[in-house]
Simulated assay, not measured.
Amino acid sequence: MDKLKQSLLDAPIIEKDGYHYFVHPISDGVPMLEPELLREIVIKIIRKAELEDVDKIVTPAAMGIHISTAVSLMTDIPLVVIRKRKYGLDGEVSLTQQTGYSESEMYINDVDDGDRVLVLDDVLSTGGTLRAITDALEHIGADVSDVLAVIKKEGPNDLDDTDVNVKTLINVDVVDGEVVITDEHGDD
């Protein structure tokens, strides 16, 4: 069994405000992230994502950073981190991120009209973050070559009614306090 699947099956479940969710090294940074798991995920991303002629990897802070850094190191594609802090640099674009849990402003720097980008994130849940990012990149004039999230939580999300196709490595649900793998290979 692959390490990603096993790590999700072994993930602790916590309840917060009546919502059950899994705690996982990729989505939460705890428990600790074993190098073998990160390596497996990076190899799967490189095999699955459309990387040809990609100029930049774009990821939201914070939990996309470790995955995207590893992919950047393996592909030599520069990394742009979307921050929750405004820097006021030339060309900075703000976007409003809405998730099932919160709403906040985020800021994109160093993405220009015509850039071909890969958007990487840890989890697709409500889709609010990825929807805001893809909308902002479209506004900038960037060409989104691909969007990939490592883990997809089953259920409707904000990208369902868009043309954005999010590839995933594995799809899960939380049922009766346990992680259930709904698709071992994710979405293409």
Score class of each variant (00 low, 15 high):
residue 73 L to N: 13
residue 13 I to H: 12
residue 168 T to D: 03
residue 66 H to C: 10
residue 62 A to G: 03
residue 23 V to M: 13
residue 50 E to I: 00
residue 118 L to A: 04
residue 91 G to Q: 09
residue 60 P to C: 10
residue 119 V to T: 03
residue 128 G to W: 09
residue 115 D to V: 10
residue 53 D to L: 02
residue 64 G to E: 04
residue 74 M to P: 00
residue 5 K to C: 06
residue 140 I to N: 04
residue 166 V to H: 05
residue 134 T to H: 02
residue 163 D to A: 15
residue 165 N to S: 15
residue 160 D to V: 13
residue 125 S to T: 01
residue 94 S to T: 04
residue 52 E to T: 08
residue 108 I to M: 07
residue 149 A to I: 01
residue 118 L to E: 00
residue 147 V to S: 00
residue 44 K to N: 13
residue 112 D to A: 13
residue 61 A to S: 14
residue 95 L to V: 05
residue 160 D to H: 15
residue 75 T to P: 05
residue 160 D to E: 15
residue 179 V to Y: 06
residue 93 V to T: 15
residue 75 T to C: 03
residue 81 V to P: 08
residue 171 N to Q: 13
residue 185 H to E: 14
residue 113 D to R: 13
residue 168 T to K: 09
residue 168 T to E: 08
residue 166 V to R: 04
residue 133 I to T: 14
residue 38 L to F: 10
residue 168 T to L: 06
residue 28 D to M: 02
residue 70 A to N: 12
residue 133 I to R: 04
residue 81 V to Q: 09
residue 71 V to E: 09
residue 150 V to H: 08
residue 106 M to F: 11
residue 116 R to M: 03
residue 150 V to Q: 10
residue 108 I to V: 13
residue 104 S to D: 05
residue 56 K to C: 05
residue 186 G to H: 04
residue 13 I to C: 13
residue 35 P to Y: 13
residue 171 N to F: 05
residue 92 E to V: 00
residue 163 D to I: 06
residue 20 H to L: 14
residue 34 E to H: 15
residue 160 D to R: 14
residue 69 T to R: 10
residue 68 S to H: 08
residue 178 E to Q: 15
residue 113 D to I: 00
residue 87 Y to A: 07
residue 169 L to I: 07
residue 175 V to Y: 10
residue 84 K to Y: 06
residue 71 V to W: 05
residue 56 K to V: 04
residue 112 D to K: 15
residue 186 G to V: 01
residue 34 E to I: 11
residue 32 M to P: 11
residue 149 A to L: 00
residue 80 V to P: 04
residue 182 T to S: 13
residue 71 V to H: 06
residue 31 P to T: 08
residue 43 I to M: 04
residue 109 N to F: 00
residue 184 E to C: 05
residue 103 E to P: 01
residue 50 E to Y: 02
residue 159 L to V: 15
residue 119 V to K: 03
residue 167 K to N: 09
residue 124 L to E: 08
residue 76 D to T: 10
residue 175 V to I: 12
residue 76 D to R: 14
residue 8 L to Q: 06
residue 67 I to S: 07
